[in-house]
Write a protein that binds this DNA or RNA. Structure first.
Lengths: 242, 242
DNA sequence: CGCGGGGTTGAACATTCTCAAGAACTGTGG
DNA sequence: CCACAGTTCTTGAGAATGTTCAACCCCGCG
């Protein structure tokens, strides 16, 4: 939140696979770091490398060796998993400031998920060894990391519970409600943060069902669908007691 | 793993809500602590309290304020969540050495799940403040915690993916396979680690469906059901391509 | 011996998926 | 600015998968 000295739209070209001495780029926009002193921050900046990916490129795959933490400096990353029988499930999107690779950093050194650039994306990398050094040296970073993990775990468990106990209709309604909450738009209108295909995958259903349920919501007068993935919510309460 | 000086079956009466000076009881059996020096360990032991619960008692509820980490010293804890529409979902069981309460310790200070003693259970408590003090002082504990979180997150995301993409039959088969793996029994026979009712809740289905699917597996010659929740797996490969 | 919880079974029903076809949208290059 | 290609999205109909509810059983335990 604070310390956003680097500009507003996170657009930085950190170079490609080079050390990037001297400027804070990605580091300063990562929540887990931005409580640090400038001095410590520079220390971290020293060991960071950056790399960029074209839209659609795979950043890492399940099963691959993992040795770095990836921090999104700009762009968007799609994280997904494959189930035992090969079906894809969207886990989450990473936006600038978010990071990934953690799992493999602390337990199995192997990725369990896939990361794909959803658009042209730049990431900063910090190696496992460097990161662990900092964690030992500045314990407060660990606390931030733990907090982040907590949130993600909570998020994931909530999702599991929903998928196992609620029907699609309800899950979709809850998703829409959360979109409003997070985008906090005032006439209750917002843009779906992903394609309906991805949404289906995230919620645990098919695109066809999404289509149908949204149409039902529209018929019932709960929402209005507009072009460009925009949705206006007319009756949030109605929606939530679906 | 190492440092198991306290005996084998984890049975200790730590007292009830009293400080428990002088012996290591729960502390030494917690993976996140047992890499520490004796000296540090005692420091932690100093601030630990213990508490016991009767079978069925609720240890904490969703929505309650949280201020402690709970470490199971003996017994078993059932962690479950309620979905938005009030349906229960079993998240996991905690066995001696496992801990809970973390979520609330690092992010929202409010529990999101319910913890219930599955049998007579004793837990050791360490307050949020004390824990954070130790984490700042001995950063290596954080690394262990992060590792634990990693694993749990991986576990939870895997579960989400399964529930959203695999059908019940497959989920059940995978569950059985994991039982074998973890209990590593040599004639492929093991005991279900929970009631079928709980299993249903965990896997995201109903007891009726569990019953029927197990019967199908039996008819197909993949397994044999025996009294006492024991199951013998006759054809693991067959089971896994269900 | 009777009680109660877990477990099983059947039949009807609800929900969602699948497959297939067509429509709408997006971005691209002329 | 338009036309085209490749997606993504929508809609329909039939089929699969699971749920619900109700009855019943079984077993362990007081």
């Amino acid at each position: 939140m604070a310390n956003h000295k680097c500009g507003h739209n996170h657009g930085h070209d950190c170079g490609h696979g080079e050390r990037n001495h001297g400027h804070k780029s990605c580091v300063s926009l990562v929540p887990i770091f931005n409580h640090l002193e400038d001095e410590q921050m520079e220390e971290i900046t020293e060991v960071i490398r950056s790399k960029s990916f074209k839209k659609g490129e795979i950043i890492y795959r399940a099963g691959e060796q993992s040795d770095s933490l990836y921090i999104v400096s700009n762009g968007r990353i799609r994280i997904y998993r494959l189930s035992e029988s090969g079906k894809e499930q969207l886990v989450r999107f990473l936006n600038p400031g978010d990071f990934t690779g953690e799992l493999a950093l602390f337990s199995e050194a192997v990725h369990e998920a896939y990361a794909q650039a959803a658009e042209k994306t730049e990431v900063c990398l910090i190696t496992r060894a460097d990161l662990q050094k900092f964690l030992m040296k500045y314990p407060s970073i660990s606390l931030k990391l733990l907090e982040e993990f907590s949130n993600r775990l909570e998020q994931s468990e909530k999702q599991t519970t929903r998928v196992s106990t609620e029907k699609v209709e309800t899950r979709l309604a809850l998703f829409l409600a959360e979109c409003i909450e997070s985008q906090g738009a005032r006439p209750l209108e917002f843009t779906l943060p992903m394609s309906k295909r991805d949404l289906a995958s995230y919620i645990g259903t098919t695109p066809e069902t999404i289509s149908r349920k949204l149409a039902e919501f529209e018929d019932a007068g709960y929402i209005r669908q507009k072009p460009q993935r925009r949705i206006e919510v007319l009756d949030l309460d109605g929606l939530l007691l679906v």
